[in-house]
């Protein structure tokens, strides 16, 4: 326990945990996206998938609590690290040039993270909480998702979340490799490229759903 506390007392240690939780949340995002793809087969398919998840019972609860913990830890560590760094430079520069290596994505991790947090709260309140409370709005979950995502406000919120997610992942994936120390002259550049590619794919994946619903499959779905 002492060793763990010592580990967490350093920013390098906390950053490692940040990366572990981040990668786990990334895994969840991938699974969630694959689940959402069931919409391409209609709202029924999504409902079926949701029912199967519900059937897991206690396992689902453990998973959800686990996800919540991952998220809280990830967010808490990010805020604590950010605070440390703000304190590390109490007086800023009058003029600050772009050094050339940082990116919009890397500089906006805190913002994209916070946007994702807000998105998540709305998202969970919209569906998961209502579902648990037995709210009739989400009795047909698939249809509720489609309605929400195709409504103007819902679409804006969704797009905001997806863009934040894309930017966040663009920096996060390769950053996690660096944090874990997985660097190698032959591989590092590939990891960085792959990080951008995966972030782009995930973004496109999430975008494809409203695009499909709005322009191709909405009739079929409704």
């Amino acid at each position: 326990m002492h060793a763990l506390r010592r580990f967490l007392d350093t920013s390098v240690g906390r950053k490692t945990v940040l990366a572990i939780t981040g990668m786990s949340l990334f895994g969840f995002v991938v699974v969630h996206l694959l689940g959402n793809f069931t919409l391409f087969s209609g709202t029924e398919a999504l409902n079926e998938y949701a029912d199967k998840l519900e059937a897991l019972g206690p396992v689902l609860i453990v998973a959800e609590v686990g996800l919540l913990v991952l998220f809280v830890v990830h967010m808490g560590l990010a805020l604590s690290l950010n605070r440390q760094s703000r304190e590390a430079r109490p007086e800023g520069y009058r003029l600050r040039a772009n050094m050339g290596n940082s990116t919009t994505a890397s500089r906006s991790m805190l913002i994209t993270g916070l946007v994702l947090g807000v998105f998540l709260v709305i998202h969970i309140a919209d569906f998961r909480i209502k579902k648990i409370m037995g709210n009739p709005d989400v009795a047909d979950l698939g249809q509720a998702v489609v309605d929400r995502i195709t409504s103007p406000i819902g679409l804006v919120i969704y797009l905001g979340g997806i863009i934040a997610l894309g930017l966040h992942l663009r920096h996060a994936l390769q950053s996690a490799f660096q944090t874990f120390g997985l660097s190698h002259p032959r591989w590092t550049q590939n990891v960085r490229c792959a990080s951008v590619a995966i972030a782009t794919l995930i973004t496109l994946g999430f975008l494809s759903i409203p695009l499909y619903l709005l322009f191709i499959g909405q009739g079929a779905a409704s």
């Binding site: 920013s11 050339g100 940082s102 120390g181």
Partner: peptide
Amino acid sequence: GHCTNHYDCMAACPKGISTDNIARMN
């Protein structure tokens, strides 16, 4: 402060020290 893997340090380093060293330290 803590490292957010911007690699601006490497860009500023007058001796061109690589951030691969940070990965190695991690």
